[in-house]
Amino acid sequence: MNIFRFAGDMTHLISVLVLLLKIYATKSCSGISLKTQELYALVFLSRYLDLFTNYISLYNTLMKLVFIGSSLAIVWCMRMHHAVKRSYDKEVDTFRHYYLVLACFVLATLVNEQFTLREVCWAFSIYLEAVAILPQLVLLQRSGNVDNLTGQYVFFLGAYRAFYILNWIYRYFTEQYFTRWIACIAGIVQTALYADFFYYYFISWKNNAKLQLPA
C-alpha cells in the first residue's frame, strides 16, 4: 500500500459518502444516473468475487464490503424508496448502458490476464468501470445545471482513478515484475473521460459560479 493508492481509496470513499449524503439529506436523486449506479454495482460484484476466498487484509475486505454495500443500497434506493425514486429523471437517463455491459464482456473474453472465470470477470469489471460514468456525464449535460453535491460526487469519483494511475507508476518503479497494463490503460481512458468535466468543474470553482456543462 502506498500513499497514492490510499489517497485513491479515500477519494473513492468520499465520493460514495457524498452521494449517500445527497440522497439521504435531500431524499432526492435528481441529477444522478441510475444506470451509472447499476453499472458500478456490477463493477464491484464482478471484481470482488474473491471477497471471501482471497483474504488480503482487513482494510481490503472492509473497503470491498463498503463499495458493494453502498452501490447496492443506492440502486435499491433509486428503484424502491418511495420518495427518492420519484425524483429520478427517468426520461433524461436514457443511455443504453446494456451495450456497454455487452461490449466490456466481449472485450474481457478477448483481452485478459488468463482465460479463467476470475480473470475474465476482473477484466470485465475494469473495462466496465472505465465507461460506467458515461450515462452520468450524458445526464449532467442534458440536465444543464448541476447541484453541488452531484458535482462533488462526480469530481471525487473521477479523481480517485487518477490517484490509482500514480499508484501504478509508483509500483512500476519500486516493485519488480509489477505490470498491470489492463488496469492502467483502462484507468487512463476512465480518467480521460472526466477531462471536460474536470475543466468545467475547475472553471466553476475559479469563478465561484454554478457548475454549468455545455449542452
Binding site: 474473491d50 482471497n54 488480503i56 490476464e113 488468463q114
Partner: peptide, 10 residues
C-alpha cells in the same frame, strides 16, 4: 502472474 499479488488492489 502471481494471482494473489495481481488482485491486491480495489
Amino acid at each position: 502472474i502471481d494471482a494473489e499479488h495481481h488482485h491486491d488492489e480495489l
